[in-house]
Design a protein around this nucleic acid. Structure first.
Lengths: 195, 195
DNA sequence: CTGTAAGCGGAGCAATATACTCCGTTTCAT
DNA sequence: ATGAAACGGAGTATATTGCTCCGCTTACAG
């Protein structure tokens, strides 16, 4: 045990491997958002412009692709949540911005994946997401932007509803535009006005 | 060609056949609402407590079950829309009632089915649904309940969004309760208050 | 009560879709 | 230039689903 044997995960990926991994993730996200369900492996590989062998090398078993997709999206959402918290002038504005960002960053896939995955997966990330949301709500409350009867569950469920793809054959831009419009109206209707 | 040969469709179904048909429809609706997608034939038959042969006798080809489900739900929705129009004291109230009824009567399956079916199917019913919606909006506008920039498309898309199953493993009652809460907030946030 | 046609169930086969492996070829990094 | 890493995709195994067929059961008219 002289020099710690570097676990294989540590070795940096070759450039093409990193690129393909990213492509697979993006393809999977796009497909899930489009069809509102789990896409077949072959479809993901084709969409990514990559061989199936490549998909299996990066994501060997049934769940690992979905897991990776969920982590990717959650991380992005948490990051944006932090930014919203840091940069917004009011709690209401931060919360509103967070939810609109969630629509844009594809949080919808997490909902879809969530249904397919064991809840015991990635407890840490879920905790991180939960934590950001809690802080957002807390601040919005302290600023008087939302009532106390608006719970974290309400917001989480709203995120699920408004981020979920309509799966009606709309193109992604239109889909997002609609989600933003509807979300805005919903937020306007929540007890007490959001900044 | 003496006495007009009665087309087979005309002969009234035997009592058990009618019961089973109804069961199949209900099972299909429940399954679609639960999993947010097309259920397998076998699953529908099992849920209905009926043999697969029976399913195929009633709905011989790929689309006929889905079509029947959609017609069933649309008819119910149109009916309720008419009632809302007839019984409500204001246009805003009628529109609000219509949307909440849509959540209850499983309009969500139409969204799901819609994506799987050819749009050229059942043009008549679609027209009927469209017509009720148009009248509801027209009346709500005349009553000053909604602005002119709230279009029929907005309302239709809202119906799609709020009726769509969350497919998160909630039981149906909870699912509906959430949809009602969210819909209410959304409606409150629409330009100009609904009666 | 009885006969019979309408209806039922579900085993089982065919078709399709999906998961996953394997290995010769290509690309990257040094 | 060369070895290690990664790639592609044909091909096979497996699961899923769609659908048929026919012997049995049930409704209901007479």
């Amino acid at each position: 045990m002289q020099h710690a044997t570097p676990s294989p995960a540590e070795r940096p990926l070759r450039a093409d491997a990193r690129r393909n991994r990213r492509r697979l993730l993006d393809a999977a996200i796009a497909l899930i958002l489009e069809l509102g369900g789990e896409p077949s492996r072959d479809a993901v590989a084709e969409r990514a412009g990559v061989g199936i062998g490549t998909l299996y090398r990066h994501f060997p078993d049934r769940h690992s692709l979905l897991r990776a997709v969920a982590l990717d999206v959650i991380d992005r959402t948490v990051e944006r949540g932090e930014a919203a918290l840091a940069e917004s002038t009011s709690g209401g504005e931060a919360l509103r911005r967070y939810l609109h960002d969630a629509v844009d960053s594809g949080l919808g896939v997490v909902n879809v994946v969530h249904a397919l995955l064991d809840r015991t997966d990635w407890p840490d990330r879920r905790a991180a997401a939960q934590h950001v949301l809690d802080r957002l709500i807390d601040r919005a409350r302290r600023d008087g932007a939302i009532d106390h009867d608006v719970t974290a569950t309400d917001i989480a469920l709203a995120a699920i509803r408004f981020c979920r793809p309509l799966a009606i054959g709309l193109d992604p831009a239109e889909e997002r535009a609609i989600a933003h419009r509807q979300l805005a109206a919903y937020l306007d209707g929540l007890p007490v006005r959001l900044g």
